[in-house]
Write a protein that binds this DNA or RNA. Sequence first.
DNA 1: AATGTCGTGTGACAATTATCATCAGCTAAT
DNA 2: ATTAGCTGATGATAATTGTCACACGACATT
Lengths: 229, 229
Amino acid sequence: MSTFECTCERCHLKTLFFRHITKNEIRSICTQKVEHNYEKGDVILREGDPIKNFLYLKEGLVKLSRTTGDDKEQIISFAKPFDFVSLLSVFSSESYHYTVTAIEDSTTCELDLEQVKEIARENGVFTLDLMTRVSEATDRIILDNLEIKQKHLHGRVAYVLLFFANKVYERDDFELPISRKEIAEYIGMTTENVIRTLSEFKKDKIIRIFGKEIDIVDKERLESISLHG
Amino acid sequence: MSTFECTCERCHLKTLFFRHITKNEIRSICTQKVEHNYEKGDVILREGDPIKNFLYLKEGLVKLSRTTGDDKEQIISFAKPFDFVSLLSVFSSESYHYTVTAIEDSTTCELDLEQVKEIARENGVFTLDLMTRVSEATDRIILDNLEIKQKHLHGRVAYVLLFFANKVYERDDFELPISRKEIAEYIGMTTENVIRTLSEFKKDKIIRIFGKEIDIVDKERLESISLHG
DNA sequence: AATGTCGTGTGACAATTATCATCAGCTAAT
DNA sequence: ATTAGCTGATGATAATTGTCACACGACATT
């Protein structure tokens, strides 16, 4: 699972976000960082687990979810490479408020949280960078949830399809990494209605469906539905 | 509007959150901080405004809202004293993504953002404290929205009433600081249905209503509705 | 005093969404 | 090979929520 050679110098995390970290700090983190591989479906973190590590996604795709009071799953958000997976509560809680599950084969990079905090305490510029990143990510989650909230069923389903097409795969045909049930858990509707809506989109020749394969045929139409439908 | 005497030493902001700030840093912030008073209904910050200051609420109650694509208002959250009002995007965007409006007479304390950032860069412990606070606040917003999302109309209205009773006023009779329309904008339902639901609660002797005065009579029942209704 | 606007309140009806039942296909387990 | 369980799919029906219409009072403006 863990790598033996140190590749932090080439790590995107460093070059993309943490421009203001010293060589020593990088080395200190590097010598104890651990990479983990997960297969699609594997649970990476479980709700209630103590927060010991600072995780980011190096490769793959994950979902953040939680269990509601009446034992239903609710998907909070999806995270892509270089998103911080342990971001929602990492600096404000002792334990995770949500579960992280791989929805594609994924690789995480785990750093010891105390060590990251130690660097943060010593290096304010690093911490400010980090805060900017965390802030962007939580902003995104809040805005996405507000967007979804104001839409009806059809608009919500269209929004999810466009999310995967535009933000995740950057192409109009892709394999849906989640089930209809999971779409429902994300947009707050029932599985049956998600399935029905996809069928209608197909009947109206807006998309083509082959199992989990989605092909967006009439993107303008789908965008219009996402906005006004 | 602005105060002439420096009272930062007694400021809750310092004692509560910024335990790790030096006397010099406090003084430096203090000499240029500005307090503003707002009356109920006043707009404190407007969506799209450039972010120049770091604001926190010293007294009162505010709502955070945004305008959706089809020009409807959507309330994101409410903020209480010592919440950071300019928190959602202050470190991740050039301009506000939302409007802040006083829903009770309020006082803000404004610090120059660049100066706060300067301190943050110099003082990692301070920044880590700050990040913890920002993180807690955004976590709260996300969790509240998820809670509301899984409930039906009745549960949502009950949830809002309990929010004001428990979290804001800490008593079971209070004057609702917002209109029925604003409740609707927060929970994502129509004004008519909010009014109807309040009427039903009244008919069922769960609450008493005198205009904006709310008196929760049967709190257990209301809590049960919030959870399962 | 007349007018307009806004918040509140209620009813009738339409639209949206959930629930329940059923079925087919696939896969894992025995 | 058979069963059990899960996802996907569709229809009928019920529940929930939205829309439209109207009414009333408070309040500000003219």
